[in-house]
């Protein structure tokens, strides 16, 4: 489709003697859903952690182009600036919500930087002065938009910890979208969802793309990956073993052997191997 949004170059991440990601290079295009797949322990989450600043890469670079031609090095930004300046948002493999806060509060915390800027260092807001009121109203409107999109509007005033699992996953996505990202990184968003929820997730991700946000997606559910992604990158043992459209990947023998590989795969991978084999 469009031009290159995210450029990962020779990314390497070592933990002591373990090389979790090994000289990985790939691109994600603007307006694409780019899927990263691979067996457990392949290094997918580690790549996400490098992109979103939770790990400092051992070597290599990660660049994002907010406008065509521009380029900002994410690996040079401090951790909290990735969301603010880098405009990269993420969700977590193990959901991380603010459980004791309401759904709406979760979405307002996501807009912290904008709201805080409107408070005049907090002093004006305490005194009820300044443009804070309008800023909060706008923030609530944006929150409502994403609550509607994730079908959570009825639960807005409930604590996040009280939501069922599927709703928590959707809330995490809504919260990430409230930071107004150009790139949303989702770590296994369909894990633990039932087929109906999984379908709803597909629609949500397509809507997010239609709204102009590109996606980077780690997913084990091949149904989701094959149906909605524009581009797939396959990792195994920290290396890229394949890179192409869903159709190309489906036909790539290296991918299938990575999933069927001898002995080093955990149980959760078995259904994927079957799905892939069946897709042939």
């Amino acid at each position: 489709m469009g031009d290159t949004l995210l450029t990962v170059t020779e990314l390497t991440m070592r933990f002591g003697g373990l090389t979790a990601v090994n000289a990985l290079s790939f691109n994600a295009k603007r307006g694409d859903i780019t899927a990263v797949i691979g067996p457990n322990g392949a290094g997918k989450t580690t790549v996400f952690n490098c992109i979103t600043g939770f790990y400092k890469p051992t070597s290599g670079s990660i660049a994002i182009a907010h406008t065509p031609g521009a380029s900002m090095l994410l690996n040079k930004l401090p951790g909290h600036a990735i969301a603010k300046k880098g405009r990269v948002a993420r969700t977590f493999q193990n959901i991380r919500l603010f459980g004791g806060m309401t759904v709406l509060e979760n979405l307002l915390v996501a807009q912290h930087n904008e709201l805080q800027a409107a408070t005049g260092f907090g002093v004006l807001a305490i005194l009820g002065l300044g443009k804070y009121r309008a800023a909060e109203k706008a923030a609530i409107e944006r929150a409502k938009y994403w609550l509607a999109a994730t079908n959570l509007i009825d639960r807005a005033d409930d604590p996040a910890a009280s939501l069922p699992y599927g709703a928590q996953r959707r809330l995490e996505i809504a919260r990430a979208m409230c930071t107004d990202p150009v790139l949303l990184c989702l770590d296994e968003p369909a894990a633990g969802l039932n087929p109906r929820e999984s379908q709803a997730l597909n629609d949500l991700l397509l809507k997010i793309r239609a709204d102009g946000c590109s996606l980077l997606l780690i997913e084990h559910d091949m149904g989701v990956v094959m149906k909605i992604s524009d581009h797939i990158i396959v990792l195994d043992h920290g290396k890229k073993i394949a890179d192409g459209t869903p159709l190309e990947i489906r036909n790539d023998i290296a991918v299938i052997s990575a999933y069927l590989g001898e002995g080093d795969d955990d149980d959760p991978d078995a259904p994927i191997a079957e799905t892939l084999a069946a897709a042939e």
Partner: peptide, 18 residues
């Protein structure tokens, strides 16, 4: 709200640019 969010989950806070 950021304080309370911090109490709930620091890592999530950081991912939101706080």
């Amino acid at each position: 709200r950021a304080w309370e969010a911090l109490r709930e989950d620091e890592i999530a806070c950081r991912s939101l640019g706080i």
